[in-house]
Design a protein around this nucleic acid. Structure first.
Lengths: 356, 356
DNA sequence: CTGAAAGCGCTAACAA
DNA sequence: TTGTTAGCGCTTTCAG
C-alpha cells in the first residue's frame, strides 16, 4: 500500500501565483469576475502544485457535499441474484457523475441496520438520497423521510402520497400495470382463452400493479388461474406445478417477471408441454441473459431499468438545485414555485420472442 | 422532498450539559478520561438534542474520512449480468459497516472516466480504495497506485509485484488454479479421457489461472480440446459447438465459469448428448441461481465471493490502522514493522451436483 | 480531569 | 476586480 502525502492548500497556490486565497478560490470555482491574466497565473500554479480542493473544508462552509446516498434494503438475498440492482446503480452512477456528485452506497442486511442508515442520513453527510422501496410495510421509507433528507424512491412506495406536510413523495417507476395489460392482451390476441398469472410477492407494489393489469384484461379470470410466486425461478416452478395440477387445460401464462417465467418454462418442459404450442408464456423485465437465454427465448415486457436509475438521480439533483435557489428567494419555507419535481412512470414495451 | 434542518452543534450540546466543547468531544469519541457523572450528563444532552457530529468538520482536523472508495471498471456490460459484483459489494459493505466506514462507489464506463476516478482518489476524499482489476492491460490499477491511496485489489492483478517502491500490491483472490485442478481431477476420476476446457477471456488472470490448472492435470491435452470463451452463456455455446465439431468424442468439459457451462449445457442438449452420461460438465463459481437452476444442476467449483469482498475490506482497514500507528512511531517513512497486510488466496471447494 | 484557545482549509461577505 | 477578514464545527494541545 502506498504513502499518504500532504496535499498543497489554497494558501500554497495563492503564494505561488502571487494572489490572495480568495482569488484562487474564485478561479477554482469557475473563475467568474477574475481578470484573464490572473486566471491564467492561478491555473498554472494549481497545475504545477497538483492542487486539489479539500472537500471537507469546502463542505464545512458551503454545507453542500456533492454526494448522494443510495439506500438498498435487501433483507433477502434475492435482489442480488438478478441484475436489476446493478443496472439501476449504473444509471444512477452515470447521472451523478455527470453532475460531479458522488455515490455513497448504503446496503442494509435487515432492520438492525436501519438505525445506522437513519443516523447517517440524518447526519447531513449527503445532499440527498435515492432509495428502493421494496416492501409495503418497510419501515425504511418512513425512517428516511424522518431524517429530513430530500429523497427520490425507486418504485412506487406502498403508502399514499405524502402524509407529511413536506411535499409529495417523489418516485420513478415503470408502468407495471400497463405493461401487464399489454402482455395479457398479446396472449389473448393469440387466441388463448385460459390465461394464468404467476404473481410476484404481493407485498411489493410492482407485483400488485402487474396483477391489477392482468385483471384489467381478464376481468372474470378464474381465481384458480392466479397463483402467487415470489419473483424467483423456484417460485415460478412451484406456481407452475400448482397451475398445471389445478387446471391442466391452461394454455397461456403471464409470469410477473422473467425469472419466474424461466422456472415455469422448466416445469412445462418437464411435464411435456410444448411452448408456445401448448402453453404460451410471457415474462416481465426483459432481463437479457434470462429472457434471451431461456428455452424457448422469452416474450416479455421490457422496462428500461438503467433509465429508471438515471431518472431518479436526475429528479433528485433537480430538486436540490431548486431548493438551493428557493432558499435564497424565500428563506422561510424552502418550498417553491412551480418547478417541484414530481413522480415519473416510464412506459414499457412488449418484446416478442419465441415463447408467445 | 423534505426540508433541510439546521443541526445542533457541539457547542449546543456543551451548553446544555453545562460543560465545555472539549469535554463533549471527548465523550462523543469514546469518553476516555472523563468522569462518569459528566459522561452521563453529556450523553443525555446528545440524546435530547439529537446531536450528530459533522463529519466534514471532523475530517478537516483529523484527516480521516471513514470512507473507502470501491472502484469498478466495467467497460462491458458483462459484470452486470452476473451477480458476482453484487455479492462482492455485499461482503465489502458488511465489513466496512462494522468499522463505521462508508462505501463510495466509483463506477466507470470506460477509459474516459479514468481521469475522474484518478482525480477523486488523489483528492484525498477517502482513506483507501478497493479495486477490481479486471483486465491485464487495464491502465486503472496504475492510475490508482499513482494516486497514492492505500489500495487492495480484488483478483490477482495482471502485473508482477510492486514495481513501485511503496510496498507490494495487496490483493485477494480465489485459488483459481487449484480449483481448476480439482475440477479436472474429478472428471478424470470419473474415468473421462477426453476432457475439454472452455476458457474465460484470457486477458483476465482468473481465466489464465484456471487454464493453467487445467493444464496441470491434463499435461498432454490435445490443443483442440481447449477453446476460448468469454465467461458468457453465448460464449459457452459457441465454444461447445466448436468443441463438438472438432472433436465429437469429447466426454467431459470443464468450463471456466458457470455461465459458460450453462451455455455448453444448452448446446449439448440441442445436439442430443446426455449429461452426464455422454458428456460430464463442471463449472466454476457456484453462482447459485445458475448452477442450481441448470439442467441438470451443475457440478462446480465454489468460490466464496462475499468472503472475498469482506476480506478485501478487512485487509484495507487493517493496513490503514497500521499506518496510522506507524506514523506516530516512525513519521519518516510511514512504512512498518512486520504487520503489513499481504495478499490472500482463498480456497475453493468442489460442489457435486448432477452434471458430473 | 476539565476548560480555553488555536487552528484544519475553505468560502463569502465586506472593503478597498 | 481583488484582498481582508470572519467564521463553518470539530479536535487537540496546553494550562489550570
Amino acid at each position: 500500500m502506498t504513502e499518504a502525502v500532504s496535499r498543497p492548500t489554497l494558501e500554497a497556490v495563492a503564494a505561488r501565483a502571487g494572489v490572495s486565497r480568495a482569488t484562487v478560490s474564485r478561479v477554482v470555482n469557475g473563475g467568474d469576475g477574475v481578470r484573464e491574466p490572473l486566471v491564467e497565473r492561478v491555473r498554472r500554479a494549481v497545475e504545477e502544485l497538483g492542487y486539489v480542493p479539500n472537500q471537507a473544508a469546502r463542505s464545512l462552509v458551503t454545507r453542500r457535499h456533492d454526494a448522494v446516498a443510495v439506500v438498498i434494503a435487501e433483507p433477502e438475498t434475492r435482489v442480488f441474484a438478478d441484475p436489476f440492482f446493478a443496472l439501476q446503480l449504473r444509471g444512477i452512477s452515470k447521472e451523478l457523475t455527470a453532475h460531479d456528485s458522488q455515490l455513497v452506497l448504503l446496503l442494509t442486511e435487515g432492520p438492525e441496520d436501519y438505525a445506522r442508515v437513519g443516523r447517517y442520513l440524518a447526519g447531513g453527510h449527503v445532499d440527498g438520497a435515492l432509495a428502493f422501496s421494496l416492501h409495503l410495510d418497510d419501515p425504511l421509507p418512513g425512517l428516511i423521510r424522518g431524517a429530513g433528507v430530500p429523497t427520490v424512491f425507486g418504485g412506487r412506495p406502498g403508502w399514499g402520497d405524502g402524509p407529511r406536510g413536506d411535499g409529495p413523495t417523489v418516485y420513478v417507476d415503470s408502468d407495471n400495470r400497463g405493461g401487464a395489460r399489454d402482455a395479457v392482451r398479446h396472449l389473448v390476441g393469440l387466441g388463448r382463452t385460459r390465461v394464468a398469472h404467476i404473481t410476484g410477492p404481493l407485498d411489493q407494489t410492482s407485483a400488485v400493479d402487474r396483477l391489477d393489469g392482468f385483471r384489467d384484461v381478464m376481468v372474470d379470470a378464474d381465481p384458480r388461474l392466479i397463483v402467487e410466486g415470489d419473483f424467483t425461478p423456484a417460485g415460478g416452478e412451484r406456481a407452475m406445478r400448482v397451475l398445471l395440477d389445478r387446471c391442466p387445460e391452461v394454455d397461456a401464462v403471464f409470469a410477473a417477471n422473467d425469472l419466474s417465467a424461466a422456472g415455469a418454462l422448466r416445469v412445462l418442459r418437464e411435464r411435456g408441454r410444448r411452448v408456445p404450442e401448448d402453453v404460451a408464456v410471457v415474462g416481465f423485465d426483459d432481463m437479457l441473459p434470462v429472457a434471451e437465454g431461456a428455452d424457448p427465448p422469452l416474450t416479455t415486457v421490457r422496462q428500461d431499468i438503467e433509465e429508471m436509475g438515471r431518472l431518479m438521480a436526475r429528479l433528485l439533483l433537480r430538486g436540490l438545485d431548486r431548493r438551493g435557489r428557493d432558499e435564497d428567494a424565500d428563506p422561510g419555507t424552502g418550498k417553491g414555485l412551480g418547478g417541484a419535481p414530481s413522480s415519473v412512470v416510464l412506459p414499457t414495451t412488449l418484446i416478442r420472442r419465441a415463447s408467445a
